[in-house]
Nucleic acid binder design. Structure first.
Lengths: 144, 144
DNA sequence: CTCGTTTATATTGTGCACTATTTATTATAA
DNA sequence: TTATAATAAATAGTGCACAATATAAACGAG
């Protein structure tokens, strides 16, 4: 029938759109909490990796975050300016830049610790639903 | 125990990160198909709404896409420059701008029709999994 | 009617996100 | 060993995304 020809081109019939929109929506719900500790969302996820794994190269950080130097270099310069991290050329390999945390950077972790907790109440899913969502998203993410 | 204190601050223990990363990943998988028809991802979802519902105001379009005039105005100016749409003040209400499709804009739908099909093979989920994902994402999205 | 308020876009400014290119350094193959 | 290739960051340029503000038009209470 004529009306069905374009059905799959409808916004509500594609998985990409709710993925795109809900990602933005969740980041938006973080905003007030992140403003309190002076970070943007991307800076926050970068700090999450650094709290666990610093010192780390820009490349190494990018592999965890799925981001390249084009995004990370300016972002890391801002974190450096804020006094949270240090950026230093690796003496062993001068191509590489090593990111390490300052005392202030490590200290910020204490303030950030309440954020995941607060966020859970902003996402209306049961533990089981969140688990299911998590697995489906990683199934998409891990497939090359 | 001491190591558990920061566990919830790990990237892999938060739902926001796979959401953010897989959204970008899926958009990336669209890229080649969209380049072929000369659209960016955001332009594509805007055209999807317009194919179904034009003529439509900027505000109306924004409500479907969860985007405001700050994002839409420059994007729509580009689509106008490409000859796909028209932007005209509504004579009934001069505050409002009505977006309508040109012949070229309507014609592009024929080229776009193969994209959802091609994309399905890029997302490694069964129909049932896609359905589940879809419902969970809209559950997040619809909650204010 | 008219002044204050609301509404619809547009504009400005900041911060990603990504592509393509450049630069510097290291690794490697002939 | 040396020319070539590969690698890691940085840079340049484009396009969102969103907050804040400005502008213009429409609405509404008195």
């Amino acid at each position: 029938m004529a009306t069905a020809r374009y059905d799959r081109l409808k916004l509500e019939n594609q998985i990409c759109f709710p993925l795109y929109a809900s990602s933005k929506e969740v980041i938006h719900r973080y905003k007030d909490y992140l403003t309190e500790i002076g970070l943007t969302y991307t800076q926050y996820i970068a700090m999450m990796v650094l709290w666990e794994r610093a010192p780390l190269s820009v490349k190494g950080l990018g592999e965890f975050l799925y981001l390249d130097s084009g995004t990370l270099t300016p972002l890391l310069k801002k974190l450096e300016k804020s006094g949270l991290i240090l950026r230093e050329r690796d003496p062993q390999d001068e191509r590489s830049v090593t990111i390490s945390l300052t005392e202030a950077g490590r200290g910020l972790r204490e303030k950030a610790i309440q954020i995941p907790e607060k966020m859970e109440s902003c996402i209306p899913l049961t533990n089981e639903e969140a688990q299911t969502l998590y697995k489906l998203l990683y199934k998409i993410l891990k497939t090359v």
